[in-house]
């Protein structure tokens, strides 16, 4: 009786250290942030001195046009870059998944952008976008075309940061898709060739469905990352011109450092966090729903069989 109890507790005992570290390293900062979002707190105060104002920070956010604008910019940015990156990354992986000479070198080259520090990427692109000496406008000029206001016009600036992000993060999707592709069961691919599938049909009916679990996780990771992007845009445009490229994380950092509103910045962070959590839960719910549906179908099928 005694030993049985001890045995049952053993796993928890082993898990305890990890649990404690998690609580300290993960839950404490989050709890701190949530608490801070209920305070009217500026950086010169200690947290204990800040005034508790309940949900006022959140209500302020609702009425704050600049926040709503940057929320919208973030959504737009994340949706566009992730869509384009997924299409490009998966497409490239499908294209380059073959054994020809030089392919491994090519693949290595493809993943280089991902390895460069974001600040450097920002600087690099800023020089390339430079209105007079940047490579793009120089090229346009030498072709006899009008220069483009890459970073000084709102719409162009938004496009510019999107291009830079796609350049940097398509390789991430490419490399994960390629890994997924190369671990697909070869025999299923062979069977589909015998069954008469063309290259396209193989991609649509065999490769993509089998890659789907990896693709969904990749998409989720990229989406979370895209919502939090900061450095590249900070260096490229610093949110401007106007609010055209001011994504949420930039807004948060400015609220904290420029406007010295720690409480409000924390509230914004929480809104972002909630958004990301909704995304994650949606994914989980989706896969759970698929599971349940197939289980129900099977149960129904078995009943009719008996």
């Amino acid at each position: 009786m005694q030993t049985a109890n001890v045995n049952r507790l053993t796993p928890y005992l082993f898990l305890a250290p990890a649990g404690i570290i998690m609580a300290v390293a993960l839950l404490y900062p989050i709890g701190y942030m949530i608490y801070a979002s209920f305070l009217d707190w500026n950086p010169s105060q200690r947290i204990g001195e800040a005034e508790f104002i309940g949900l006022r920070n959140y209500l302020n956010l609702l009425g704050d046009a600049a926040f709503r604008e940057s929320f919208w910019v973030t959504l737009k940015f994340a949706a566009i870059v992730v869509t384009v990156e997924m299409l490009l990354g998966v497409g490239l992986a499908l294209l380059l998944d073959r054994n020809i000479r030089g392919m491994s070198l090519l693949r290595t080259l493809f993943i280089l952008p991902m390895m460069i520090a974001p600040v450097v990427v920002g600087l690099m692109w800023r020089y390339m976008y430079h209105p007079t000496v940047g490579i793009f406008n120089r090229t346009l000029k030498s072709l006899g075309l009008e220069p483009i206001p890459w970073l000084s016009d709102g719409n162009w600036a938004f496009a510019s940061v999107i291009i830079a992000d796609i350049w940097q993060w398509t390789p991430f999707i490419f490399i994960l898709s390629l890994a997924a592709l190369q671990s697909l069961p070869q025999s299923a691919m062979e069977a589909s060739r015998i069954d008469g599938a063309t290259g396209w049909q193989q991609i649509i009916h065999i490769k993509l469905p089998l890659m789907m679990p990896v693709l969904i996780v990749t998409l989720l990771l990229r989406l979370i990352d895209a919502f939090k992007v900061l450095e590249v845009i900070l260096v490229l445009t610093n949110g401007g011109p106007g609010l055209s490229t001011e994504i949420l994380s930039l807004r948060i950092s400015r609220t904290a450092s420029e406007f010295r509103e720690l409480g409000e910045a924390a509230a914004m962070s929480n809104v972002l966090l909630i958004l990301l959590m909704i995304l994650t839960f949606a994914m989980f719910a989706y896969s759970k729903a698929v599971e349940i549906r197939t289980a129900r179908l099977r149960a129904a099928a078995e009943e009719t069989a008996i």
């Binding site: 025999s187 299923a188 062979e190 060739r193 015998i194 789907m212």
Partner: peptide
């Protein structure tokens, strides 16, 4: 010729079913 142009059906030693 590609397999599909050879007009054949095959049972694989390792079955090679489509897992999904």
């Amino acid at each position: 010729l590609e397999p599909k142009e050879r007009d054949l059906a095959m049972v694989f030693q390792d079955y090679a079913l489509y897992p999904h």
